[in-house]
Design a protein around this nucleic acid. Structure first.
Lengths: 107, 107
DNA sequence: TCTATATTTCCATAAATATAGAAATATAGT
DNA sequence: ACTATATTTCTATATTTATGGAAATATAGA
């Protein structure tokens, strides 16, 4: 994971509508939800929703698959875990020994 | 941690200059670094740097303290850990059992 | 108080992002 | 082929965010 990808992924969830979408998809499990369902639940117009889904897809945080006329979107857990791992490693947070001591040094 | 705060913090690191600043401060340890030092290291003009530092401060991800003529900025590890905890809990990532199984359900 | 250094604020501008209606596209049932 | 439904793309507009020079502010040494 490089810094560009990390920023792309962070940007994609650093927005209220998208964070809510992602959260909803996480809750929905790997089966995911059709776009229309997401829009209805979160009260987001179709074109706006499509824009946000594209952002999340582009960042790799969600996947999609077509099921008849519906397009199911689902959370990409691996990608999210990768992002958290990047932040934990690169930004040191999460490491207890990193907080107050100088133990945490440049990698 | 509410969604607004999470987004404020995510937005503040979802930007190349700011993610680099935060990373640098994490590496610097709790002593932190004076603004000028950060700007020189990352090649960022003073006014631009000040803008980014304000964003990070506003989000609560960094702290500052004045030491004579210098203002030292340092990473707020607790805030970052809080953000990661929020993402882990709310967005499920990080939980192994969340990945492929339907074990992970709405909280 | 004068001067040097550190940093911020002000300001204008540029660039990126978000919103949503309307039209286009895709899929499937009749 | 026609119709209904689902979603996306197109388009315009509004809003937010980023950039950096110039001026202002703050601190401290001579």
């Amino acid at each position: 994971m490089d810094i560009k990808s990390a920023i792309l992924q962070l940007s994609s969830i650093a927005q209220e509508a998208r964070l809510k979408i992602f959260r909803l998809l996480v809750q929905a499990g790997q089966e995911g939800l059709p776009a229309g369902n997401i829009g209805e639940t979160l009260q987001i117009p179709a074109s706006t929703l499509s824009f946000h889904l594209k952002e999340l897809s582009h960042a790799g945080l969600i996947n999609s698959r077509q099921v008849s006329r519906f397009i199911y979107y689902s959370a990409n857990y691996d990608a999210m875990n990768g992002l958290l791992a990047y932040l934990t490693e690169n930004c040191c947070a999460g490491a207890k020994d990193c907080a107050p001591s100088p133990t945490c040094k440049p990698k």
